[in-house]
Design a binder for these strands. Sequence first.
DNA 1: CGGGATATTGAGTTAGTTCAACACAGGTGG
DNA 2: CCACCTGTGTTGAACTAACTCAATATCCCG
Lengths: 246, 246
Amino acid sequence: MNKARQTPCIKCPLKDCAAFRPTDPPELDFIQALKIAELSADAGANILAEGTSTPHLFTVLSGWAFRYKMLEDGRRQILDFVLPGDLIGLQASIMGNMEHSIETLSEMVLCVFPRERLWTLYEKYPSLAFDITWLAARSERSIDENLLSVGRRSAPERVAYVLLSIFNRAKSLGLTNGRKLKCPFTQQHLADALGMSLVHTNKTLNSLVRQRLFRWKNGEVEILDEERMAEVAHYDEPPARPRPLI
Amino acid sequence: MNKARQTPCIKCPLKDCAAFRPTDPPELDFIQALKIAELSADAGANILAEGTSTPHLFTVLSGWAFRYKMLEDGRRQILDFVLPGDLIGLQASIMGNMEHSIETLSEMVLCVFPRERLWTLYEKYPSLAFDITWLAARSERSIDENLLSVGRRSAPERVAYVLLSIFNRAKSLGLTNGRKLKCPFTQQHLADALGMSLVHTNKTLNSLVRQRLFRWKNGEVEILDEERMAEVAHYDEPPARPRPLI
DNA sequence: CGGGATATTGAGTTAGTTCAACACAGGTGG
DNA sequence: CCACCTGTGTTGAACTAACTCAATATCCCG
């Protein structure tokens, strides 16, 4: 990890993304002033560790990561994937310390904000405070989905579901290329996200590939039959919910 | 569901509970003014349904409920349990509609707040807005725990874990009686929370009972050997984190 | 005194796990 | 440029945790 030259918020690559609320100039100025650094992390870097407390709050500018928890004996559960526009470290900022860890899957650039000024944000910019709550609610929603998957879906259903949901998230961020998406994770990551063993994840993946639902070559996933995948996954396309303007 | 006589916020039974931040008189007055009704629901009532949108935000005064999601074919996953002091319907209030349902396990009394005034709260009472975010973060934490359980713990581990964590939550709310706790859920509820079948849940429960870790009679759970239960569950007592005073 | 919901138990089945061997690719150092 | 090494993916075989089915027991409530 090392600090890099900063991108001014006004040029934030996420600002015009459909997933985000247009931000007023005064809010933008405030965020700009709040931002104390830009952090570049390599793939495989530990951004935050369970049990610790960071003085920082992060926003993802680019790159992929995942939130996870581990049991002492090494069993790991990936809670969800972190994509550009996600907020990291809110739990620690609000509750004191982290109860999960975060590791990057690719190179990642983050904006760094000091935790202690979060309160100022709540006082002075209620609209931004509302946005933070919105992000927290969205993230809870995605964990709810994963819990349903891991608890009640069969292996093929889970695999189809996770691929579809990642694909759609990435699509809404403009990261997809037609029906293709560069995915920086391994089958081990998928297994840990789905609560399955590596071997069975592999076999399930290949079985779905043989059914021509998708392909996965050179770290690139290509959805071949979205309809049938949604069927297998019991996936309801989430209504493209525009972020409320308050 | 029917409306009942209202308890003034100043006499809120949760106000002095250790889990809550002492609230200033002006904040209390605002909440009091915000509260438009008190709702009494029977056991087994549907408070909120997936896919719908409510004009209300609720706070639980007393009683138990659970949040859940279902697949079309009826498979149900309980996401977490709802206890007094929890906030209900924030997702709908912030994002437009619910992606999960809520059903009561016992009689329940709720305070009702109009959703449209949430924004006023953010504008006028940043400290309360901060509290809401705190509640959202806490709830996310508990789902993270459940996801770890369902994804990576074995059946006995899951059962021990869920009982311990419910017991400790209830204890911090003053609902326990020594090592005993009245639990209004059935084995089916536990099974659906743990992502297991009813039969296997029953067998696992009984095996732990035979090992004298706990008892469960007449809807009352009694923890007999907390230490060994924590061992089986790989349970780390959550540090009793006082709610920050901002 | 029923009758429906809940809990218990046994038996047979299966989805998913573990173990182990092998294949393949990319990256490094000699 | 090759030889090796490590991380990743693939496959078969044996095993087991958890599931389903089905029958019975128990509890609670009207």
